[in-house]
């Protein structure tokens, strides 16, 4: 078996001295795996995903991404982050730049790619997410779903080894959720390693290899998709599923 892309070992994190938001969390994601992380709000799932690219520091434990320990001395965090794509709940496109420039910025400034190469790569990715026609537009002129598709393309432009999705569809109007999920499903089927924090159980059913259920800062269950949906091992997961799948 090849080395995991993400390895989280006994991570403890608290924001202030007090109740930890992550309490002894361990999780491994192998290359090509699609792992959905779900759970009630406040369960720590968004915090966990932000720890994976060191946007949030941890107090104890170890996180290894693509063979690099985030806490090791001399680790170049910006370099490492460049290889970890991240998609945010609120898209976070840069509003003062055209769509194409949003995609090119980090390619040029971080990877040192020549502008022409960066544009070619960007255009290919915009086509992949169906946003070619919007390359010269500013993000403000796009709908939420369109912005999120651009944000996914922007993350992919860095040729990441893993993609993190932090509630990527939670801020969207209902009619725009599926256009973003379609892109994510296509990405999953292309073999991309993905860690996806979401409430979209339809997405999990379709492409997840494993479903991780978090509750109160702990991983309560980590099961293959079929088991999680057919026969969840824990009472808490069963309760959660019955609540969100009622309607």
């Amino acid at each position: 078996m090849t080395a995991p892309v993400i390895q989280i070992d006994h991570v403890i994190k608290s924001y202030t001295a007090g109740v930890p938001v992550l309490h002894d969390v361990s999780l491994t994601i192998a290359r090509g795996e699609v792992v959905v992380v779900c759970g009630p709000s406040g369960s720590g799932k968004s915090t966990l995903i932000k720890c994976v690219n060191a946007l949030e520091p941890i107090q104890h434990g170890r996180i290894v991404v693509d063979g690099q320990d985030l806490a090791s001395k001399g680790v170049d965090l910006p370099r490492l982050r460049a290889r970890v794509g991240m998609v945010f709940q609120h898209f976070e496109l840069f509003p003062h730049m055209r769509v194409l420039d949003n995609l090119c910025l980090a390619q040029c400034k971080v990877l040192g790619r020549p502008r022409a190469d960066a544009e070619a790569r960007s255009e290919a990715l915009l086509e992949r997410v169906g946003m070619t026609a919007f390359a010269a537009k500013y993000p403000g002129a796009l709908s939420g779903g369109q912005q999120q598709r651009v944000a996914i393309a922007r993350a992919l432009a860095m040729d990441p080894v893993v993609m993190l999705f932090d509630e990527a569809t939670s801020a969207l109007d209902p009619e725009m959720v599926s256009e973003v999920l379609d892109v994510m499903v296509e990405l999953a089927r292309s073999g991309m390693t993905m860690m996806v924090v979401t409430h979209e159980m339809g997405f999990a059913r379709k492409v997840a290899h494993r479903v991780v259920f978090m509750d109160q800062g702990e991983i309560a269950e980590d099961s293959p998709r079929e088991i999680f949906f057919e026969a969840p091992r824990t009472e808490r997961a069963r309760e959660f599923l019955s609540k969100i799948l009622t309607y």
Binding site: P78, L80, F88, E92, A106, K109, V110, A155, M158
Partner: peptide, 13 residues
């Protein structure tokens, strides 16, 4: 918004 900086950092800037 704080997310702008986070997004920039996440891209490796």
């Amino acid at each position: 918004p704080r997310g702008q900086e986070a997004a920039a950092m996440a891209l490796g800037l």
